[in-house]
């Protein structure tokens, strides 16, 4: 459980970080909270010659809350939980972040690392797809925005180029009801199944619904069809069944120690039903 040797860099601005990447190319990698990367290094699943620590880069920090919410990549999961303005404007973030790992991990783990990592077990990617968030990437050719719903390609493969740094996440302040529902075996475990749900209602009918699932495929699953199935309904009965069926058609879980595929699908359905019920209730 000891990683191979590496060089450690600690730039103070984005340009500095990009400079190290430019110099060392593939051999360089940024480290944020380290709570996904360091375990992989210790298991020698990745070998990195140049580690670029982002914690002194002030531009990657901070949360701004308005009609648009912007979260710096280096904001920790604890930081999300603890930000009163953010929790008031987008309470689903707090609800989800509280279900990530344990307090020790959340003090270190960052939102940027969580979404950039590309591990299907991470909770933030599905959440960001549900929120229809945008990721800002900065590279040698400047800055570009990529929607969360288009960011994930396969496990550990994303739209981010190797020489780009994810600097911020932004999304419109969500309206209506919300729920983040997650089943896990224990504290500190990734999801057996998790569902992020946002619901808007008018006159008892659902006008907008956004649904994304976590750890049920090699990438997060934004299920547009599931959301559509709820529109114009009260979110119960046949509409709910239809939404669940649509979601089940979109996911593709694999067997692991959390259980076989059949079980995961069943739990995904149960979890989604509960999340929708809570979100509808809160809308």
């Amino acid at each position: 459980m000891i990683p191979p040797a590496f060089e450690y860099h600690r730039p103070t601005d984005i340009a500095g970080a990009l400079g190290v990447i430019a110099e060392h190319g593939d051999e360089a990698r940024v480290i944020a909270g380290g709570h996904s990367l360091i375990p992989m290094m210790k298991l020698r699943m990745v070998e990195i010659a140049h580690l670029i620590d982002l914690q002194d880069v002030a531009d990657l920090k901070g949360i701004s809350v308005g009609e648009t919410i912007r979260i710096g990549a280096m904001v920790t999961q604890h930081g999300l939980i603890n930000d009163a303005a953010l929790s008031a404007a987008a309470p689903i973030l707090r609800e989800a972040a509280l279900q990530i790992a344990d307090p020790q991990v959340r003090y270190c783990g960052t939102v940027g690392g969580n979404v950039a990592n590309g591990d299907p077990g991470n909770d933030m990617p599905g959440l960001m797809q549900c929120l229809d968030a945008t990721f800002t990437l900065v590279g040698p050719d400047g800055s570009r925005d990529v929607p969360a719903r288009e960011f994930y390609e396969a496990a550990y493969t994303t739209a981010r180029e190797d020489d780009e740094i994810l600097t911020a996440i932004s999304f419109a302040k969500p309206a209506g009801g919300y729920a983040y529902e997650k089943q896990k075996r224990k504290i500190g475990d990734y999801a057996t199944a998790a569902a992020a749900v946002l619901i808007e209602k008018q006159g008892g009918k659902i006008t907008a619904a956004s649904i994304a699932m976590t750890n049920l495929s090699d990438i997060p699953v934004f299920s547009e069809a599931a959301g559509d199935a709820l529109k114009g309904t009260d979110g119960t009965g046949a509409a709910l069944d239809k939404a669940v069926a649509a979601m089940l058609a979109d996911i593709d879980p694999t067997e692991d120690n959390r259980g076989p595929v059949e079980f995961k699908k069943h739990v995904a359905g149960v979890i989604l039903r509960r999340a929708i019920a809570r979100a509808v209730d809160r809308a």
């Binding site: 075996r185 057996t192 259980g259 076989p260 079980f263």
Partner: peptide, 16 residues
């Protein structure tokens, strides 16, 4: 008796 084994028990007993 982890989640999936309990679930399997319930499933086999026809409780789903």
């Amino acid at each position: 008796h982890d989640h999936w084994r309990i679930w399997k028990t319930a499933n086999k007993l026809g409780l789903h």
